[in-house]
Design a binder for these strands. Sequence first.
RNA 1: GCCGGGGUGGGGUAGUGGGUAUCCUUGGGGACUGUGGAUCCCCGGACCCGGGUUCAAUUCCCGGUCCCGGCCCCA
Length: 428
Amino acid sequence: MKFESLRGFRDIYPEDAEPRDRMLSEIKKVARSFGYQIIDFPSVEPLDLYRIKSGEELVSQTFSFTDKGGREVTLIPEATPSVVRMLTSKKDLPKPVRWFSLPKIWRYEEPQSGRLREHVQFNADIFGLDTPEADAEIVGLACTILDSLGLAGNYEIRINHRKLMDEILRALGVVDIPRVFGIIDRFRKIDRQEFMNSLGEAGVSQDSARIIEKLASSRVKADDSAGLIQSLMEMNNDLRESLERVVSTIRMISYYTSSEIVMDFSTVRGLSYYTGLVFEAFDIRGELRAILGGGRYNGLSSLISDQDIPAIGFGMGDVVLELLLKRTNLWHKDISGNRYYVCTVSDDAASFSLKLSIDLRKKGADVIRDMGKRSLSAQLRSASVNGCSYAIILGTKEVSTGSITIRNMSDGRQEAISIEEFLSSIKK
RNA sequence: GCCGGGGUGGGGUAGUGGGUAUCCUUGGGGACUGUGGAUCCCCGGACCCGGGUUCAAUUCCCGGUCCCGGCCCCA
């Protein structure tokens, strides 16, 4: 009988698991440098938690089942509801709260490029602040993480504002705003004519449709945002407050990164619960799906509790990030310079090699001890493929003199030194 | 859930309605009784699964499954 991993699930071998672990460590390090604290929560939750927030569409794409007590439960398809529950059930948390997490999440969908049925998703949120500063910090955190992974200049941030969009559409006389959001969301996937037709079918006038089309196809860089205010204000003076907030947010974000920040009216992040700033990061070549996405979701906490706490956050999956890092040649193992391979070439050196290995590890070194009784050639071959910088050779000669023979694996030079001298030379 | 393209050792491949299934690479061991990444030798390892057609299927047909890509969706 042959077993394979389930569709959409991965076995991750050291050649990928090591770089991945390094990537996740770097992400955590950056989050902590912003004062965000790590949290964790269950991988299985009541299915209703997602019904409330996202409806049956999401529920149909969960790994869900009925447990032995007859409860409908699911492997979590996202982190936010669990995080918001943790936030609202502890009422004495000093605000603002800055949290991050690295849960595995699951979605029952057809796997495709950059999307699997199980992945790790980094989440960061800031609760209790509804300001441009908080908006900018969350986007700034996202940018700083990507930059510290070496991706500066390889991605762009697309920003929009749901409230601003809402006001613009209202000013244009749009009645069915959610429907038009849906059409705008598909702007990049459909051709111009189909876009205009859809707007027409949604009851949008021709003049308004032309303006929406123009907005959706414009990309405004951070530096040009003043001009943007000007032109949109001419359209409707009521937009001033929202516009100024977006522009000041973008200005602050540009302090965090040199990567491109653009105002992009076609970024609306589906039809979900976002209420303010929304943003996504894409690779600059446009080959991959979104690297990360997020936004402000002020209404959510009051849906699942009696509290109303403003919130903004984002999620970033490991799958697209790995693809991008590989394409950018940034998917490497950490080369540690303190790795020893202990070779034993005679039976009487066995206990010597065991004791030396233990002592070395206590000094903080990584030590692989060869335990097969095989030729020294074979042992050195193992030392080489395991990436050890030094091999230590122990045999009758070394046992009788209380010394070791140490071989530098990169240049082949070797010397014999006393065991005491060697151990004291190892830095802890 | 839907659509398209694929599936031969761990990786990359050749090939065939019939015989011990090709080559490269990787892996293990040895030549080297105490010296790796070179060379040579030896060894291990595969026709995705099920059904059908046939005297005979890895090969042809059907279904499934998995992989790759796309749709839907992206919470």
